[in-house]
Amino acid sequence: MALLKIENLSKNFGALKAVSGVSFEVRKGQIFGIAGPNGSGKSTLFNIITGVPFSATSGAVWFNGQSISGIAAQKICHLGLARTYQRETAFDSLTAYQNIALGAVFGPGEREATGAATLEERVCRAAELVELDRARLARKASELSIFERKQLMLASALVMEPKAMLLDEPASSLTKPEIAETIRIIRNINARGIAIVLIEHVLPVLLSLSQRLLVLNHGEMLRLGAPDDVVRDEQVIAAYLGKRGARDAEAA
């Protein structure tokens, strides 16, 4: 059964169709990649899936067998759906620890998924899983490096014990070693049975992780399928990858 089911989802801003008729399914524990040129509606898609800051114009989102269109925003994570942002978003004046703790306290809602673990144990476990140095937890989020802020964002989502995570360009503006670490971290998260929907421009990340790949163009679905097939698709090469990108994709 699909964990996350997107049905004919559309978002219009006036005459602009930011997302148009997008449908796909993500199974439990799957890594689902989304690619496309800038402005193709990838982040908007995440926004309308969660309904924050705006909801879809039409279409439906099902999560864990339940329609979540129109559900109160703060309840989304209670159901087990978390997201990260393209920009390293954190509550800057709070310490890294406080950032993660907020998710731990408010995130799971009524779910009794945590067993007997204390708040501190849960925060530290989340930090450990994303390989965020424990010594950095006492620092203010604003004092962390870009990579650490990305790790913090993942830990804050992870601590809510989600069933699925929507990751918006987790590898952007990172160095090569950091990207390699990010891939490892996402694999570790996924190994805990958490489904991942991954928006990414960094092709090696996308191709080494995704089991299914969707390419968006002008808000519409250009191609959906196995990653190897998708990157060889003529339309995908023309609209997004370009000839050189396609060669890189082959290499990856």
Partner: peptide, 24 residues
């Protein structure tokens, strides 16, 4: 306090606060 942290979180980023389950 947790509630205090949540208030500061809302002040800084309401969207992220909502998606962290904070009852804004």
């Amino acid at each position: 306090t947790r509630t205090g942290s949540a208030l500061r979180a809302i002040a800084q980023n309401q969207e992220a606060a909502l998606l962290a389950g904070i009852p804004v």
